[in-house]
Structure formats: C-alpha cells, structure tokens
C-alpha cells in the first residue's frame, strides 16, 4: 500500500513492456530529481495487463498516480511526475 500523499509510479516489467523498452526504466528511481524523490513511491509490477492483444505496440506502460503513460520513456515519466508534483 502506497504511503498517503505520495505520487505512485507503477512500472510494468511484464514481458511485452520489458521487450518493448521498459528495461530502460529500471533505474528511474535513482534519477528522479532530489526535490521530488521524497514525494514519489516507485513500484514494479510483473504485468499491469495493459499490453495484451493489439495494444502491445503502445508498450511499455507506466502508471503515474493512475494515469497511464504509453510508450513510456524516462523523459515521459519524469515529466508526468513533475506535472503531478506541481499540481
């Protein structure tokens, strides 16, 4: 269970997401800017079930406070975190 008030970043490390690029997100926790780090909780999942069937081409998927980011990259995820932090 995530801590109250924290922004929850959920990384999908299922096969499809990992193959399509989630491997690049493995170390994202260490590159979150220091000013945001205490406000963010990062969780890795085996699969978020967003990639099946035709949507696999939009993998990798990440959820930031429930908001789905498709074709996720480090830049996209950091931008989403920044946007959530700044409201």
């Amino acid at each position: 269970m995530e801590e109250a008030g924290k922004i929850l970043v959920e990384l999908c490390f299922g096969t499809t997401c990992f193959v399509m690029g989630a491997s690049k997100l493995q170390e994202i926790e260490s590159i979150i800017p220091p000013q945001y780090r205490k406000r963010v909780e990062v969780k890795a999942h085996t699969c978020l079930d967003l990639c099946k069937n035709a949507t696999y081409m939009k993998a990798p998927f990440v959820k930031v406070d429930g908001e789905i980011i498709s074709e996720a990259t480090v830049e996209k995820v950091l931008k989403a975190i920044e946007s959530k932090v700044n409201g």
């Binding site: 299922g14 096969t15 499809t16 990992f18 193959v19 399509m20 085996t46 699969c47 099946k52």
Partner: peptide
C-alpha cells in the same frame, strides 16, 4: 535476444508465469 523477446511478445507469453 531481440528476436527472442519479439517471439515471446508475439506468442503472448508472460515469461514470469
């Protein structure tokens, strides 16, 4: 390995399972 990964995706195999 890239082709192996693509094979798993095409087969809809969740390797962790």
């Amino acid at each position: 390995f890239e082709e192996m990964g693509a094979l798993f995706v095409a087969f809809n195999i969740e390797v962790a399972n």
